[in-house]
């Protein structure tokens, strides 16, 4: 019998620790499929963050380094500068990338560091139990915004893709999501392009994946996707925010 669906080789054969309904599993798979399709597993080095995806180093079959909280782009820079011919990616959440690691993110992007960053934005700190993230929406209730995020008290959410797109360094920035089959396909296409850009030496690419956290949002997985579509996507619109290739075509 022909096997029509299997685990990507670049994904290790271990159970993921993620909560039921967590989209991390989907995005891990997409990254692994892209690594397989590009045939780059043996030449790829990944950098895992601190946050829910901290164990990502166990899930990808390529060489991995585990970074301190927020420092993945700096660690990836160090690796890439030693092995410019290898493919280096980071996989980071919103607290890691847009709060404690903002400086590392902005400067890796500004340098046009030739790496690929996968950014999971689910508007909350998942691993520590649901605190306010830099991307938490105004009014959103979290453990540390129990009365809802208040602009005056807690400040405003950051639109990472839009912010980084103002820089000259990045080659490609796109915001995607993984709630439906078409969206998952589009997300994979974007991730693939982000890796291809690196292989072509085009510089920094970031794919922001608008995601959910059923556990800390206190919802079922389907309710969480509904809430995401109703609340997050209006604030974080999907689309391409930067693409140096598109400019060339004009």
């Amino acid at each position: 019998m022909e096997k029509v669906f299997t685990r990507p080789h670049a994904l290790t054969d271990v159970p993921l620790h993620y909560c039921p309904g967590c989209p991390h599993g989907i995005v891990h798979r997409l990254v692994a499929e892209v690594i397989d399709e590009l045939g780059i597993e043996g030449s790829t080095i990944g950098v895992a963050p601190v946050g829910c995806s901290v164990f990502a180093y166990n899930y990808f079959e390529c060489d991995m380094q585990e970074a301190a909280h927020g420092r993945a782009p700096a660690v990836a820079t160090g690796i890439k500068r030693v092995h410019p011919d290898k493919v280096v990616f980071t996989y980071q959440g919103d607290g890691d990338l847009a709060a404690i690691g903002t400086a590392e993110t902005v400067h890796a992007a500004a340098r046009g560091e030739n790496i690929t960053t996968i950014f999971i934005n689910n508007a909350i700190y998942g691993m520590t139990g649901g605190q306010m993230a830099p991307t938490t929406l105004l009014g959103q209730v979290t453990q540390t915004t129990p009365y809802g995020r208040d602009q005056g008290r807690n400040g405003n959410p950051i639109r990472v893709s839009e912010m980084l797109a103002t820089l000259d360094g990045p080659s490609y920035i796109e915001r995607v999501t993984v709630d439906t089959i078409p969206h998952i396909k589009a997300a994979k296409k974007a991730i693939k392009k982000a890796f291809e850009n690196q292989i072509a030496g085009k510089g920094f690419s970031l794919i922001e994946v608008v995601s959910t956290c059923p556990t800390n949002w206190g919802m079922s997985p389907t309710e969480a996707f509904d809430w995401m579509r109703d609340n997050m996507l209006p604030h974080y619109p999907l689309g391409v925010y930067k693409d140096i290739d598109a400019k060339e075509e004009k």
Partner: peptide, 18 residues
């Protein structure tokens, strides 16, 4: 680097990479 923090983490990356 953009900071001392970033610099030492680049060192971590590069040292880890051999």
């Amino acid at each position: 680097a953009e900071s001392e923090v970033a610099a030492i983490n680049m060192v971590y990356g590069a040292g880890g990479a051999g």
